[in-house]
């Protein structure tokens, strides 16, 4: 991930990935949730691990990612689809009325090996995000963190096969995770 300079192929890929992530973010902010689901592969792994305060000499264990560790969210496409359908029931009170979200994405990097075309069907992407939410009258929160995605090219189109979202918060301060980060 320490590429100072990407090859021209890498630059083109980075641009493609950035545009993909921006349009994905826009889709969520536009509440095009069912269309948004199409951006994920069927074998999706979608995880939001939790962080804890530990001594700095144990910092490798700050995020709890053991096989049986509890996450904020750890699921596949079936459950993610259920979340979207839950919003569409019109009686999912935490999202009725809907949240207004704005996703900001920055610091996007693609892995060097991918950029060099060693394994061009999958792309490992790291970036940061900020999601602002406003709802009803004075309910607002900002969730910030890092994301790591594994994108896969399926029939020429990029899709998300794995997404891990690392939040900065240990105590989640934003009431509930009813919106998509």
């Amino acid at each position: 991930m320490s590429e100072a300079k990407l090859s021209s192929r890498g630059t083109a890929l980075l641009q493609e990935v950035e545009q993909f992530l921006y349009s994905e973010a826009e889709m969520v902010d536009d509440r095009q949730f069912r269309e948004w689901l199409n951006l994920f592969t069927d074998d999706l792994e979608y995880r939001v691990p939790m962080a804890r305060n530990v001594r700095s000499d144990n910092i490798d264990n700050e995020y709890m990612e053991g096989a049986h560790d509890i996450h904020w969210i750890d699921e596949g496409k079936e459950t993610l689809t259920q979340r979207v359908e839950q919003i569409h029931t019109g009686v999912h009170w935490a999202e009725e009325p809907l949240s207004r979200t704005t996703h900001l994405i920055s610091n996007v990097r693609v892995s060097e090996s991918v950029a060099l075309g060693l394994k061009d069907e999958e792309v490992d992407v790291r970036y940061v995000f900020l999601t602002y939410r406003h709802r009803l009258n004075d309910q607002e929160d900002t969730v910030v963190g890092r994301r790591r995605d594994l994108l896969r090219r399926v029939d020429g189109q990029l899709k998300i096969a794995r997404r891990t979202i690392y939040l900065n918060q240990t105590v989640f301060l934003a009431r509930s995770l009813s919106h998509f980060l």
């Binding site: 049986h68 509890i70 750890d74 935490a94 009431r175």
Partner: peptide, 29 residues
């Protein structure tokens, strides 16, 4: 067994906590 723990934890997280599809609506109320 591990696979049982894994199925259970997936279900727990789907149901409960701030990301739980059931708990969210309680929190709202």
């Amino acid at each position: 067994p591990d696979h049982v723990k894994d199925t259970l934890r997936h279900y727990y997280m789907t149901y409960s906590g701030p990301g739980g599809m059931t708990e969210q609506d309680d929190l709202e109320n």
